[in-house]
């Protein structure tokens, strides 16, 4: 019974994610339009808004690239069927690919064969976090390829300090130009090691646009990076304008004295994610989207 609830919820989350942007992203894009001075950029933002409204109203995937399927799980230690979750989510991904539909996006790197149903080795990928309690929180996070291709990690010289981070981020966004489908959201992961910094950068994208980091010093850097990156003039789709970055979210870990990893995860404006909380008795609460008919 609970297996079916989880499977159906995961399918619903994938559908919500690919057809309707979360409220914070929609508001962020509309606010950007209000402040944009460049005509071509305004045209691009208007098209983006028209498109995501059409997607939501007609249950159509807003972008044809429905991404690599990634899930973030926060599992209460007392949630009953933890070990079956990977199997359930794989089944949900296959069914969602057919029902919604999702574009088949899982290719074997050696044979170039597309599996046809968005599953394969390690895919869908699951990020696990264990917590207290008995509930399961699932976030579906289909990640587009265009913005993934500009994501980067660099090991900075610790002597460069915070200034080094700012320069690296400005350089990287200039190098990326319009390729990651600007306006983007930047997830920045600092510290740990290479793998940890990249994980944190991606995880930072789960935080809503409107919410800054809890520590004021980090929040200040987020604000400053938003201003600096929008001074580039890259604009929506690289066609010029004031709107290049919608938000900057930073997460950090303590670093090794001799290393200073900084990772940047680019998220295109089609920042698709949807979350729900499932109780052991099968109750489902959707956290990011209003469910039609409710």
């Amino acid at each position: 019974m609970l297996d079916a609830v989880i499977e159906n919820t995961a399918i619903n989350l994938l559908k919500l994610a690919v057809t309707e942007l979360p409220l914070d992203i929609k508001q962020g894009i509309k606010m950007a339009l209000e402040q944009e001075r460049n005509d071509i950029a305004r045209n691009q933002l208007n098209t983006i808004i028209k498109n995501f409204e059409l997607g939501a109203n007609t249950n159509t995937p807003i972008c044809q690239d429905t991404g690599t399927i990634i899930f973030y799980l926060t599992v209460g230690e007392k949630f009953p069927i933890i070990s079956r979750l990977p199997q359930i989510l794989k089944r949900a991904t296959k069914r969602a690919s057919e029902i919604i539909p999702l574009r088949p996006n899982a290719v074997n790197p050696f044979t170039n064969k597309n599996s046809g149903d968005n599953t394969g080795k390690y895919i869908p990928f699951i990020n696990w976090e264990i917590t207290s309690g008995d509930a399961l929180k699932i976030t579906a996070f289909p990640k587009g390829g265009g913005s993934e291709n500009t994501s980067t990690i660099r090991m900075l010289n610790p002597g460069l300090g915070i200034k080094g981070i700012k320069r690296f981020i400005v350089d990287t966004i200039i190098l990326a130009g319009g390729k990651p489908c600007t306006p983007v959201i930047l997830g920045i992961g600092i510290g740990g090691g290479t793998d940890i910094a990249i994980k944190l950068a991606k995880k930072a994208l789960l935080r809503p646009l409107s919410r800054h980091h809890a520590e004021s010093e980090v929040a200040k850097l987020e604000e400053e990076l938003l201003i600096l990156t929008n001074m580039t003039g890259i604009g929506p789709m690289g066609l010029g304008g004031d709107t290049t970055v919608l938000g900057v979210n930073i997460e950090y870990a303590h670093r090794h004295p001799g290393s200073f990893p900084v990772a940047i995860a680019f998220q295109c404006w089609a920042a698709r994610k949807a979350s729900a909380k499932i109780s052991p008795d099968g109750r489902v609460e959707y956290l990011t989207h209003k469910i039609k008919g409710d």
Partner: peptide, 8 residues
């Protein structure tokens, strides 16, 4: 416009 797949 990149991502405007529904509109297309």
């Amino acid at each position: 416009t990149g991502g405007a797949g529904a509109l297309a």
